[in-house]
Amino acid sequence: MEQHRNVYIKSATQISLQEPLSERWLESPVWPKDRYVRSQNPDFRSWLSPLESRRMGNLMRRALATSLSALAAATIEMPGAIVTGTGLGAIENTEIFLDQLCREGEECRRPTHFMQSTHNTVGSLVAIHTKCHAYNTTYSHKSVSFDSALLDAFLQLRRGITSTALVMGNDELTPSYFNILTKAGYVGLPGQVPAAEASVAMVLAAEDPQEALCRIDDVGLAYGALRIDALPSEFDAVMVGYNGALANDTAYDRLLAALPTKRPVLHYKHLFGECYSASALGLYASAHVLAQGVAPAMLRRDDGDGALEVRRLLFLNHSGAKNFSWVLMSRPENKEL
């Protein structure tokens, strides 16, 4: 059965509405005000020649920039696995193809848009770029897409099947798809955090705490209901995805109420917005909070004020109050405060 190799997050990078490829948001965040905020793109020429990027939309450029940055930060050239999560995949290309199909009929469609509409485009792109023939897969399941990818990588590392893994979460949002998702009541509700985009890459490694941001102690997915009282209870804060929408927030209220012991509550979507890969940004933020051992006051959702010392964190996420995920993570042993 399960061997117990320790799993660490060696590096974690993001492109979001905050300053890209940076942790500056921990000190001076962007406070988003609109209902829909797109990511800030870095200058992609550091990673891609114009010839290489000629067919790539935002999603692919961002995925490549975050993953190559994460690999460089972890000083790993080629990961032992590439596992990707995305809720909608390359929705920009999908929409262009779909829109033309619906408006102009079935003639002469452009292959590039179709080719990049599949959800595994990103995982494949990074593999091609790093010439990585290792295990490569993609999860696409609403708001637990990244969480599913994380679980897959975690289990492989834990069981010694691989010793490093690149785990990604990527979603983009076009203006028209924002409008469509608003009609469906997923984003854009009054009082809700902005609809946003997310590109996150992290490098995980087994038995390698050197310079790690944090250790991942466990990851789980639960469908239907999450028995939070059955989870390990040694943690000193909970990170959740409140987003200002009643149904979403009520599900977190219920989970927190079921905790055997009350703990300080942290949140992140007020800074990063909502999208199907938002949990990847939440986990990224949690990893950096643990790396510095302190959650800044702006992440606190509870009554307490001021920065909060954090050594062990429970990360909770859900999709439609139906599909739940949790991650238990802690400061690595060599990073005692």
Partner: peptide, 26 residues
Amino acid sequence: HDCGATTEMMADRFSGFGMVTSISTA
């Protein structure tokens, strides 16, 4: 529209699934 929606429709048709996710590698 999304992949997960179809999977959850199937999961909800038959009770008892405690873990549900979708894989999309074409």
